[in-house]
Design a protein around this nucleic acid. Structure first.
Length: 311
DNA sequence: GACACGTGGGA
DNA sequence: TTCCCAAGTGT
């Protein structure tokens, strides 16, 4: 990983009014990345576009450390999209294990089917084609196009948003939902050169993940601490509306999780009675099961049996 | 734009 | 123990 020979910064960002005064951000962040990037399996060349895509699905709302073992097993079992597409969707849900948000497994399976049918088994490189796949939204489409294909896209995930909020906007946290101003800023900060832009995307994300973290940020290790608007302002505390906390205990989500855990660990149809044991309250239990069925995560069978979906 | 959607580790 | 948070997407 060599640093860019031609500094690509200094053009696009010059017109950004929110831009903090001082030095450009790209070069120090990319240099820091070259020295401190984690050696993650989906960053190795052999991962390919499919490996990048699988990792992006798994990493949605899920910490790296929890993804690592599941990713390795997944790629060993299904090294190409067509391999996964040939399986029952329920196998994807089972292999997903306890990563959480199992609808992602179903969507990844659906994306593999679509790639096999529509793209000859190769992960598409066009942003619009990626976006059309199930489970791929604005972020993941940009991430795959950037990380797997070296294209120039603004990759705006929660890490990058936090880095920008602090370094550029001078606030502790970004807004709850991504704003047009954030997208504009991300585009404006994007290096002109595609390869450098892709490097910058990975580097700014890594900075947010390792240094500019949500809590206990490590400014002493930050390559742009000297230019950080938030730090320069004395790190004012977050003021706006409190960030929405996720309630969990007692919710349908928790019940769904328990129901699906039973189905995952069983290797065949499960009788209703086995599912009834996971939650005492029958109305909520039934509602959760219905939700799983309508999501396609569970398949009802005759005789009050349930299983992970075969199709 | 607000919500629903899993899980488990760390402070 | 309780709360916060972790590379978002779909409705």
């Amino acid at each position: 990983m060599t640093a860019p020979t031609k500094p690509p910064y200094g053009t696009a960002a010059d017109s950004v009014s929110e831009r903090a005064p001082g030095e450009p951000l790209h070069s120090p962040v990319i240099d820091w990345f070259d020295a401190h990037a984690r050696d993650l399996p989906w960053r190795r060349p052999e991962a390919g576009a499919w490996g990048v895509m699988v990792s992006e699905f798994m990493l949605q709302q899920t910490p790296v450390n929890r993804v690592l073992p599941v990713y390795e097993q997944w790629m060993a079992r299904w090294p190409r999209p067509a391999d996964l597409a040939a399986e029952a969707p329920g196998e994807a849900v089972r292999a997903w294990g306890r990563l959480g948000y199992p609808r992602r497994a179903l969507r990844l399976h659906g994306a593999a089917v679509a790639i096999t049918e529509r793209h000859g088994g190769d992960v598409p490189s066009e942003h619009a084609q990626l976006l059309a796949l199930p489970g791929i939204g604005e972020y993941t489409a940009a991430a795959v196009a950037s990380f797997a294909y070296g294209q120039r896209h603004a990759v705006l995930d929660t890490n990058v948003r936090r880095v920008f909020a602090r370094a550029v906007s001078g606030t502790q946290y970004p807004p709850n939902a991504t704003t047009a101003a954030e997208r504009r800023l991300a585009r404006a900060l994007l290096p002109e050169d595609a390869a450098t832009a892709a490097r910058w995307a990975a580097a700014s994300m890594e900075l947010g993940a390792l240094v500019c973290t949500a809590k206990n940020e490590a400014c002493h290790r930050c390559p742009i601490a000297a230019q950080c608007a938030w730090r320069l302002a004395g790190k004012p505390a977050h003021d706006g509306p409190p960030r929405r906390g996720q309630t969990y205990a007692g919710t349908d989500r928790q019940v769904r999780g328990r129901l699906l855990a039973v189905l995952r660990e069983a290797h065949g149809p499960v009788p209703q009675a086995a599912l009834d044991r996971v939650w005492h309250e029958p109305v909520q239990r039934a509602r959760a099961l219905d939700g799983l069925v309508s999501d396609g995560l569970v398949e009802p069978m005759p005789g009050g049996l349930y299983r992970l979906p075969l199709s």
